[in-house]
């Protein structure tokens, strides 16, 4: 176990360093990516303004404000894309190189992803989160989020991260079958922003759709931790959504191993 971390933690450290190296672009990027959330905040404000003022999709206007910004925080730390790197390695043929090294390719990518995630958690994640809390307390006069919800949120977000990277690894493997993964990346990001609840809370969908989403991994990526943060789950329901996340981690891990095995076999046969 100790050896495991000793092998893979440097990937995390290097990734943090690499991220820090982009300095000029950095400040503006943070500012502008938040700008998008602000616009979405106003959009929702207008939508609530067009109703009689009650809750829609099970969320009050104040909750929706928190939803918008916590979705931003969550997806920025969860959605660390590794499939681009996978497909690049495939196209360049460096995947075969990785087979020679005494490390697991997927773990090295995951630990790199952890680096990015930690980095984004520190900057800007934590600042936006503080901002959300202050805003909801001082302007919206809602109480601070309780420590229990917060801990559960962090735990769930961590699960989400693993679900996402394990899913994305499988997705990146598609590059073995088509050279043109860019078009598929477009489809992926469109599908994900829709089905993870990033664009609109999943409770806005008709009931039939929501039933279907229960059987897909996407709602576990962003929607679940944010709803936990909002205190929308309690008791057995809470245990259920967390357990579902864990199950998805197991399923996607197994699926990834299976595909990887198939692919490397092919790689050996074809000679990379």
């Amino acid at each position: 176990m100790k050896k495991f971390f000793k092998t893979y933690l440097p990937f995390t450290g290097n990734e943090i360093k690499r991220n820090l190296a982009y300095k000029g672009a950095f400040y503006l990027f943070v500012f502008c990516s938040l700008f998008g959330s602000f616009i979405s905040y106003y959009l929702w404000k207008a939508i609530y303004g067009s109703t009689d003022g009650g809750a829609i999709g099970g969320l009050t206007q104040n909750q929706m404000v928190i939803y918008v910004f916590m979705t931003y925080v969550t997806s920025s730390i969860v959605k660390v894309s590794i499939s681009e790197e996978v497909s690049e390695d495939v196209v360049k043929g460096t995947v075969a190189m990785n087979l020679i090294k005494p490390i697991d390719y997927r773990f090295s990518l995951i630990f790199k992803g952890i680096g990015s995630s930690v980095y984004r958690f520190l900057m800007p994640g934590i600042f936006v989160w503080i901002g959300v809390e202050l805003y909801s307390c001082l302007v919206l006069h809602e109480p601070f989020t309780g420590i229990v919800n917060l801990v559960l949120y962090l735990c769930s977000a961590m699960f989400s991260f693993f679900i996402y990277v394990l899913f994305d690894f499988c997705f990146g493997m598609i590059a073995f079958f088509t050279t043109y993964i860019f078009g598929l990346q477009m489809v992926k990001s469109a599908v994900l922003s829709f089905l993870t609840g990033e664009l609109i809370p999943l409770s806005f969908f008709p009931a039939v759709f929501q039933k279907v989403f229960d059987f897909l991994p996407f709602s576990s990526m962003v929607y679940t931790p944010v709803m936990i943060y909002l205190g929308k789950y309690s008791g057995s329901e809470l245990m259920f959504v967390l357990a579902r996340q864990v199950i998805w981690i197991v399923i996607l891990y197994a699926l990834g191993s299976l595909i990887w095995k198939k692919v490397t076999k092919r790689l050996v046969v074809l000679g990379g």
Partner: peptide, 15 residues
């Protein structure tokens, strides 16, 4: 060019 510093600490300093 912008000055670069070595190491993780240096990277933060560079920021």
């Amino acid at each position: 060019s912008a000055k670069k510093y070595p190491g993780l600490k240096g990277a933060i300093k560079g920021l």
